[in-house]
Design a protein around this nucleic acid. Structure first.
Lengths: 219, 219
DNA sequence: CCTACCGATCGGTAGG
DNA sequence: CCTACCGATCGGTAGG
């Protein structure tokens, strides 16, 4: 019963031999590969319908090996969402920063919509559908964790929406409009066909026409 | 090995003693109770995360008993969706029929949106979120089956959208607008709080303001 | 509808 | 990272 009689370790290992540091593991290319395959499978089959064995096989590992990199299946789901949201937030921020400072609110919103649609229907970008579908699978703590990123991402839309509202080009209340608009755009992940008749730029134009009413005085 | 030596039956029973006819079973109040509890649990926990045992317990049965009423767990999911869509389609049709024949396209769309929001956020109406989240869980045949109803339901929106487009009050292409609008409205199932600051009528008004631009000439 | 049960699958772990 | 494994749970079924 003296299971603690192991070689001297700084901290008690949770299982098996001492594990490498968190950082060493997360820098391993296998770590990123697991994340990528998990995102793809979670999107295609759903979280519950995807087994750790599926993910391990897709990454070329044995069934127990993903647990070397991730504490649990649930931690893998959270990592998919957090990674995706963090990258999307960063690229959105850069895209906005690249805009001319004198860009109109309409141009800003167009840029935001175009960028978001790229994220939503990107061939390698699965985390938004995963967030949509698997939000329920998170614990309250995990949800709060991801919500911080999601709120920051969506908050960046509010100044443009508010300016458009004041200018009379957006007739709904900005906070409600934001909810409707994200619902509309995110749902495109389901129906948009990259090989279909509509390009992402055309889709952006259609969305803008639907939501934003040009001022009568400007025409 | 003479397992076929059973009492004379019109058709070979699949299991156990001869079952009552399909109709006898589907008219049993327990049948409807199973459907109701399944819809509620599928929505709250997801299809995969809900076991037949959960549903049986919620309906006050033993774990194997739901299979007396439904062939499989999957058949229960399909029944939830088909029942919900069929009822929603019927009530939508009646709501439209009750409209004055001279109602404007805008009034018609307002009526459709208000009715749909009632379905989407209704306390006892779970099938739209279930359809949104569990579409993947259906086989292609089952999907085609439900799609017939869903297409009929959504097709009823097109005449109003097309009239509004011709009148210049809807600037996006009607087919694309329909996809965006259903995405926006269905997503309200996630965030709308019946006890919150917005009533369903106010929400309808906000949606209409967002999507429909009154003609400049009419103001 | 219930009882009693089966085979399959799954998340996770000990130990190396 | 792999091997070998465990306990739990699940959909479904035979027979009544």
């Amino acid at each position: 019963m003296d299971q603690a009689a192991s070689p001297p370790a700084a901290r008690p290992a949770r299982r098996g031999r001492p594990r490498k540091s968190e950082q060493e593991r997360s820098e391993n290319p296998r770590h990123a590969e697991l994340l990528r395959e998990a995102a793809r499978l979670f999107r295609a089959q759903g979280f519950d319908a995807t087994s750790i064995r599926d993910i391990a096989a897709a990454a070329g590992m044995q069934s127990g090996s993903p647990f070397y990199y991730f504490e649990s299946k649930s931690a893998l789901l959270v990592a998919v969402m957090r990674d995706g949201m963090a990258q999307a937030f960063e690229s959105q921020t850069q895209t906005l920063a690249a805009l001319d400072r004198r860009a109109s609110a309409r141009q800003r919103l167009q840029t935001l919509i175009r960028h978001h649609l790229g994220v939503v229907v990107g061939a390698e970008s699965h985390f938004i559908p995963v967030m949509l579908y698997e939000w329920r699978a998170l614990t309250p703590t995990q949800r709060a964790d991801i919500l911080v990123l999601k709120d920051a991402y969506e908050a960046a839309w509010m100044p443009s929406l508010e300016r458009l509202h004041r200018a009379g080009e957006l007739k709904a209340r900005p906070a409600v409009a934001r909810l409707f608009i994200f619902g509309a755009l995110n749902w495109a992940a389901q129906w948009f066909a990259p090989a279909g008749p509509l390009s992402l730029d055309e889709l952006t134009e259609q969305a803008l026409r639907l939501f934003i009413h040009p001022r009568p005085t400007s025409r």
